[in-house]
Write a protein that binds this DNA or RNA. Structure first.
Length: 444
DNA sequence: AGCTGCGGGTCGG
DNA sequence: CCGACCCGCAGCT
């Protein structure tokens, strides 16, 4: 996405005490700013004291041109003529300036599984990536999708999650930790300053994309629904009992699940350390509950072979009947009874396939597809699906087109991407099934 | 139950 | 000193 951001520093307009102690008077921090004491203990912040470093920033943050600010600077750009569209999958060393009105930015959302990290700086929220939960058997569904579950954010929940089984083959789950930042997890930083929310990402994710939060929630609810209503619920309960006793889940029919859209994985060059080649036959179910691939023990038993989500790039994928604009016009968290609860994952997931550019995220399906070229804010493929109710043409696109966050001052022309980190930045408006969506994109 | 944010604390570089 | 990480707590959904 291209966002022509024009930042002009007007030091005279900024009180010198603005970044000093206490709540900055000249910096009305709305919404979910960090209310506590301003510790600013980071010595690096001192470097921002020199206003000269921010003189006349005149470019788009995503172009990498506006890189002179750092999240640790005492003073950040104060006058931004145009804010960025919210980035759902920020990757690499990117910076964005969001409007403080942006609900996603306010909530520090990311579709990566990011957990809070204490950096002892109440002004700057730091989050680190948890990676992705994969199937220890490296199984695939019938259409070649891999299992990329979203790691639970809560430590306890994550431990619990790892004791569970692959929803596709009941194999063991494995947490693929993120090491994209010098061996450490990718970190994201959020800072509220005035009417802007500054975002900075450090590191490039070296793992596939997990489910989005919504997908994970949907999967859970679907599993719940199925557990509650399916004839096999008794068996499930028994299995759970057994699991609780033994820590192992007996083989049972695969649960419905939401899988991350394979097209959503854009492998950077350093993505080569993951997963085995069991998915070479994408159209075959390589579900290997019965054929567990021996893996290196440990959390990251990486094979070093080309990752499945990397090879997808070279796979010509059969276009989906749904087409790129088949996302539900009226997204809903609740799966339709008698439908989603019995749908396989590939049916559940919205088919944001058919991307012309394999290096583009599926989250940009609309952005780079038939709709997105008109409308810069791309619509994420992460929206919860309602397959039995195909959206009318232009439905989601229309929503996306009208989905301009209010504070956006103008539309970037063409909606082309301009990400310095690999041309994969796009606005992703996947939070379509909650109030946020409608807050962000009021019906007109 | 799980997510999110805060903050005290530890540890290693 | 800094960054990563652990843990508990609190508020929220």
């Amino acid at each position: 996405m291209r966002c022509d951001i024009h930042v002009f520093l007007l030091p005279a307009l900024r009180p010198a005490a603005e970044s000093g102690s206490g709540t900055a008077v000249g910096s009305p921090c709305r919404g979910s700013c960090f209310p506590r004491g301003l510790r600013c203990g980071n010595s690096k912040m001192l470097k921002g004291a020199d206003d000269s470093i921010m003189e006349h920033e005149d470019s788009a943050s995503q172009h990498g041109e506006m890189t002179s600010w750092d999240i640790n600077d005492i003073k950040l750009p104060q006058h931004v003529s145009q804010t960025d569209w919210f980035q759902e999958w920020p990757d690499s060393y990117v910076k964005h300036i969001y409007s403080s009105e942006d609900k996603n930015a306010q909530r520090h959302h990311s579709s990566w599984a990011m957990r809070n990290t204490n950096n002892h700086n109440s002004r700057i929220l730091k989050k680190s990536c948890l990676g992705v939960v994969v199937c220890g058997n490296d199984c695939s569904t019938l259409d070649g999708r891999k299992i990329y579950l979203r790691p639970a954010i809560c430590d306890k929940a994550r431990q619990k999650q790892q004791r569970k089984c692959c929803p596709n083959c009941n194999g063991p789950l494995r947490l693929l930790s993120c090491r994209g930042h010098g061996g450490y997890p990718v970190t994201n930083f959020w800072r509220h300053e005035g009417q802007f929310i500054f975002f900075q990402s450090k590191g490039a994710h070296d793992h596939p994309r997990p489910e989005t939060k919504l997908e994970a929630e949907a999967r859970r609810s679907i599993q719940k629904a199925k557990t509650a209503f399916s004839p096999s619920s008794l068996r499930q309960k028994r299995a759970q009992e057994i699991e609780s006793l033994t820590g192992a889940m007996p083989t049972q029919e695969p649960l419905p699940l939401l899988l991350s859209n394979p097209d959503a994985h854009i492998p950077p060059a350093n993505f080569r350390r993951h997963l085995s080649k069991s998915s070479q036959e994408p159209m075959l179910s390589s579900c290997s509950g019965q054929f567990p691939y021996p893996r290196t023990a440990g959390e990251d038993g990486r094979s070093g072979e080309a990752p499945a989500w990397g090879r997808r790039l070279s796979l010509s994928r059969a276009p989906r009947a749904q087409g790129p604009c088949s996302l539900p016009a009226v997204p809903s968290t609740a799966p339709p009874p008698q439908h989603c609860a019995h749908l396989s994952a590939q049916h559940i997931l919205p088919g944001t396939k058919g991307s012309r550019d394999p290096f583009r995220s599926a989250t940009g399906a609309l952005g780079d597809g038939s709709c997105g070229e008109k409308f810069p804010p791309t619509y994420s493929g992460s929206c919860l699906p309602v397959p039995p109710c195909p959206a009318p043409e232009g439905g989601p696109c229309a929503m996306a087109s009208g989905a301009q966050p209010r504070p956006q001052l103008s539309l970037p022309a063409g909606g082309s991407e301009g990400d310095s980190g690999g041309g994969r930045q796009q606005v992703c408006l996947n939070y379509c099934n909650n109030d946020m969506f409608f807050n962000l994109y009021p019906l007109r």
